[in-house]
Amino acid sequence: MTTYLDAIADAIRIEMRKDQSVFMIGEDIGVYGGAFKLTKGFLAEFGPQRIIDAPISEAAIMGAGIGAALNGMRPIVEMQFMDFITNGFNQLVTVAATTAYRWGIPVPMVVRGPSGGGVGANPFHSRNSEAWFAHATGLKVVCPATAADAKGLMTASIRDQNPVVFFEHKGLYRKIKDEVPEGEYVVPLGQAKVVREGTDVSVITYGSAVHMALEAATMLEADGASVEVVDIRTLVPLDEETILQSVRKTGRAVVAHEAVLTAGFAGEIASRIADSAFTFLDAPVKRVAAYDSPTPFAPTLEKAVLPNAEKIAEALRSVLAF
């Protein structure tokens, strides 16, 4: 059994051993081994040329990644917390995301780091900002929920020719452990996974909300309802077909994510279901997401604004009762 954090580190280590063009750059990733110790031991194995500690300058770090990618490397850029990606936002959305379209030159770069709330970390260490990047055009967006997927999707992201924004959930780092294949392991980007089969209602979800949805599905068993859970795994590219297949089968859908509701990715998924599976629906599509606020600090507040299994179960019951 491997943790989500170790699975990601394992994927990076394997690619770095195999491919000299893969290197890492970030803040405190060398001697310190990263704020979450994901790169523990990396400096000793790969040396300071390939595990580069940079000044606190997310734009400079992001740009260094882009430029190195233009010059034949496969950089992995660490954001110490994904919240700080805002300081490198221009580099990512203005330069990295448009280079293929404008110049036809690949930017094979992974920007990764811990995102998400639920750990009492304050509004600036808890954000789920994946929807911003899904909206940027030209960036792939990955949100793994399990250790095995985290490994397989990381391998695929490193090997991809395009810039990939890889959202790790810090709450899952050491909480989730599963069977992770040894050695090289690839989960292709753009393939959703039915993580629990059911017949009455579908939960379309990703990231930490996959675990909430599975818990909710168990709760609903007591009501005699059979809940299907689809983990989309990547927002861009989006596996629309697997989502639609599930909804056509169950006729009901709840879309859930930990990010805030308004203009969240759940709206995109709900809209695609409405467009392409309308006649299969027996109830309106419902969304479960965080309250539209920054992620608060105190546990009472944070627990109240973030989604959880109970909130998803409640949505499922209302959709089933429609």
Partner: peptide, 29 residues
Amino acid sequence: DPRLRIYGNVSHLGAMIPVANGFVLAGKL
């Protein structure tokens, strides 16, 4: 034009200087 070793600008001035860094960093590596 990568064949001519030219990498142009974007309208957000200053944005390509970090990128130029990365290019020569890769060369250095």
